[in-house]
């Protein structure tokens, strides 16, 4: 592999990222880094190259044919994660995947493979947790609205889960960190990016139901077995902010207001 001293910038999409990978693999290059264009903080030392996809070829299909579904899922997971240098990690993972194919999953002694699989695992685990921790509130017109602030960008997987589950509802999932909305209506999910916050009106009935849930939550815990540490390790504090049953604890311990 040839060393080169460039930082490659890409426009934020999975296709564009794969195009850079493709470009680098063809020329057998080792970049200094690969960074999302809008996240890049310029400095004087490192030269940058901004690459934009020029061919009509579908990169996803190309690499799906060259590797496998399972490998592409890992690369997609990494793309959606918030890990540092995730592009570089997934680039090396892809290179190794082309070489080792399916057996890549057993080669955890390779640093990049190990890191890549750990990131992918983290994204999937968070998706699974969020399926449980997401809380909808009923707002105007019986629309269900849920806020969340996960570490990774997991809204696409979540939306698919609720599409099947809450078929006959209209619902909105709002990723507060990334300002992405997933809106579901009549069997279709629409994703949109919007910085403005919507105006939410909560009904009295909604408050009653939330109260009912809190009462249940209190009643179902066994006093004699209290184990807050265990509770916290399964349900880390970072998720408490939008959990209705933890509201009282939030007021006591956390200064969420200062964060936002």
């Amino acid at each position: 592999m040839k060393e080169n001293k460039f930082i490659y910038l890409y426009e934020d999409s999975f296709e564009e990222l794969l195009y850079i990978f493709d470009y680098l693999i063809k020329r057998n290059l080792t970049p200094l880094d690969i960074v999302k264009e809008k996240d890049y903080v310029p400095n004087l030392l490192d030269p940058t190259i901004f690459l934009k996809k020029e061919t009509k070829e579908n990169m996803q299909n190309k690499y799906l044919n060259k590797t496998s579904k399972k490998i592409m899922f890992v690369i997609k997971d990494i793309y959606l994660s918030n890990a540092c240098h995730k592009e570089l990690i997934s680039y090396y993972f892809l290179r190794n995947a082309l070489k080792y194919q399916e057996t890549i999953f057993y080669r955890k002694n390779l640093k990049c493979v190990n890191m890549a699989l750990n990131i992918s695992h983290y994204v999937r685990r968070e998706t699974h947790k969020m399926k449980g921790f997401l809380r909808f509130q009923e707002i105007q017109n019986h629309i269900l609205y849920a806020k969340m602030a996960p570490e990774n960008n997991i809204i696409f997987a979540l939306a698919n889960h609720f599409k099947e589950r809450l078929k006959n509802e209209i619902w909105i999932i709002h990723d507060v960190k990334r300002h992405i909305y997933a809106i579901y209506k009549e069997n279709k999910i629409y994703f949109l990016q919007e910085e403005k916050n919507p105006i939410i009106k909560m009904t009295d009935e909604e408050k009653e139901i939330e109260h009912l849930w809190k009462s249940f939550f209190q009643a179902v815990g066994i006093e004699e077995r209290e184990n807050k540490r265990c509770q916290m390790s399964f349900m880390p504090k970072k998720y408490w902010r939008y959990l209705i049953e933890m509201e009282d604890e939030n007021e006591n311990n956390c200064n969420w207001k200062n964060v936002n």
Binding site: F133, G221, I222, R225, N227, K228, R229, C230, Q231, M235
Partner: peptide, 8 residues
């Protein structure tokens, strides 16, 4: 979906 104060 949640964890009660006894950690269950």
């Amino acid at each position: 979906h949640s964890f009660s104060k006894d950690g269950r």
